[in-house]
Design a protein around this nucleic acid. Structure first.
Lengths: 335, 335
DNA sequence: TTGTAAGCGTTATCAG
DNA sequence: CTGATAACGCTTACAA
């Protein structure tokens, strides 16, 4: 029982190979009897369609590729779950493009569209992985979370600027005046927007931030811990730390404990994302929640719309974020 | 610049299409000059090979599919990272088969091998997703973490029984006599083996465990929290809880705090996996570390060996686990 | 309603 | 060293 193809079932059923194909794809273009005959024969010979053949012919692979820095990151993983759910509904499979932040890998995975291994791309990066940015010659593409800022490429994300401002205002309302921030890579659009929001909120409160209050991490827990230790070296310490992701925040709280600071008594910490572990942290982490899985799902839906030939009505899709106050933030300690 | 194929570059270079193909795949079977000419022409016309065509012809898709319950689970995500790394090295792409534990989805994804969308399968499940288990007619397949227990299917995992025993002995050595366990689904082979190890270690210490000391979860954090609350309902409480995953353990510690228990003063907690957040937990979680990423990588290597026609030398590959003592375990409280 | 036949883009065999 | 040419398995006008 090596390879069974449509020809085998055609022979078995005593019909032409075209009829077999029709019986599967256009069931109503074939007589009821023949269809049953074909289906039965197919079962008898143990047929499984070879999708490569179909794909070659129809020029549709049935795959989409998601280009993302790190599947092991909680937020990213959740985006993927959202994407996968919709893709599965639509009968598509998802190819994993784990880039570890490498631009080269981003291009490599993006090339899968050109080479017909994928019909569309969901891009979780701030840069476009194409040499020629001829926007009209791009494959179906949607940009998630990280604006590339290219007109003509749909993007779905939260309003990062507002999210940054909201988190900051929460701290401000609590009475904090010395707020530090641990950002992600500044190449990241969302990091920059969050920082804008932070600055705006601080300015709005009539305060000033020294740039030594802003320290960099790369969205990982470990880097968050390191950045925190760096922050604590300064002579005048902040009373609150705004971390640009929950992973950073969890690393931050860990480092704080290591240096003998109690959260939130000695120092408040707030994150962004609302990953699952945020609520299980000790203390439970105050954060700005993103509808992560929904962002992924939305990306996928838009992508499929584009692949179906629809012209998207809008380029940027903003999903709602929400401040979730838990127990890692409190008023600053008495001086 | 619609579709450029080898025929276009053949025309441009003034050679036959066969020569073009050779220039790419068997560079030494073509004169140095022609090869350069072809390569130049290819660049000029903007050629990208269509892998569907090649795949159809060679009957190799260049993809492997990984069938896994939930990408958002930290341990699973890390397995995938390991797999992806090796696959990428080998020039393969990975298709994501997120099953949410559904046997139907497992079969669905496994079918991608039959339909030629994937050349091999990495299966993170305890059951075989095939109707006919004709072991000789199976596609290249390796089983990770969860023994299906089928002879002839390579499996890589830690020694779950020993891991379970080691964790238990750690608790025992600390002086605990009342140990509860929160297992994963008992359909899972690894859960069963860990439980075996637990029972063996307890028996070895001359103790007995009532079955009301064993409670079930599904490897998620939330279920770990629930299971813990259930456990605390009993009149005689344990002094230590052995959780069969770190996610469970983190949920457990959360629930414990919620009920006013301090870890490890009032109750010790130990997990399995050593996910990243284990060390960032408060208190840092004592756990039995799995070489998770390496397990994934090993699965992939074995799979590629099989796909290369090698007959695996052994069916079960045990990777070393290691007890990592952090701060969530301590001697039981004085009575 | 069913069959014939022409590809889809690539690889591989076999002559020149 | 190079070039016809026949597959690979399927879809799809078009014809019968």
């Amino acid at each position: 029982m090596a390879k069974v193809g449509m020809k085998d079932i055609a022979a078995e059923a005593g019909v032409s190979i075209a009829t077999v194909s029709h019986a599967f794809r256009n069931p109503d273009r074939v007589s009821d009897g023949t269809r049953r005959k074909v289906l039965a024969a197919a079962r008898r010979v143990g047929y499984t369609p070879n999708r490569l053949g179909a794909s070659l012919r129809t020029a549709r692979s049935g795959n989409i590729v998601v280009i993302i820095p790190d599947v092991a990151d909680s937020h990213n993983a959740r985006l993927i779950v959202g994407i996968e759910r919709i893709a599965h509904e639509k009968g598509y499979s998802v190819l994993l493009g784990n880039t570890r932040g490498s631009a080269a890998r981003e291009r490599e995975f993006a090339a899968m569209a050109r080479s017909r291994q994928a019909d569309g791309i969901i891009l979780m990066s701030h840069r476009l992985p194409f040499d020629a940015a001829g926007a009209d010659e791009l494959p179906p593409l949607v940009n998630g979370c990280e604006f590339t800022g290219h007109e003509g490429i749909p993007c779905v994300a939260i309003d990062d600027r507002a999210a940054g401002a909201d988190a900051t205002r929460h701290l401000l309302a609590l009475g904090h005046r010395e707020i530090a921030v641990i950002t992600g890579d500044m190449a990241s659009t969302s990091s920059r927007k969050r920082l804008e929001g932070f600055r705006a909120a601080v300015a709005e409160a009539g305060l000033a931030v020294g740039d030594d209050r802003i320290v960099f991490a790369d969205y990982t827990t470990e880097s968050g811990a390191e950045a925190t230790r760096e922050l604590l070296l300064h002579r005048d310490r902040p009373t609150a730390i705004f971390c640009f992701s929950d992973e950073i925040a969890i690393g931050c709280m860990h480092a704080l404990r290591g240096q003998g600071f109690a959260v939130p008594r000695d120092m408040s910490v707030i994150g962004i994302d609302d990953i699952e572990f945020a609520r299980y942290a000790n203390p439970p982490l105050t954060t700005v929640a993103q509808p992560t899985e929904e962002i992924g799902a939305r990306c996928a839906r838009i992508l499929f719309d584009i692949m179906d030939g629809e012209r998207p009505g809008q380029w940027v899709h903003i999903l709602p974020h929400e401040l979730v106050v838990r127990e890692s933030t409190a008023p600053p300690p008495e001086p």
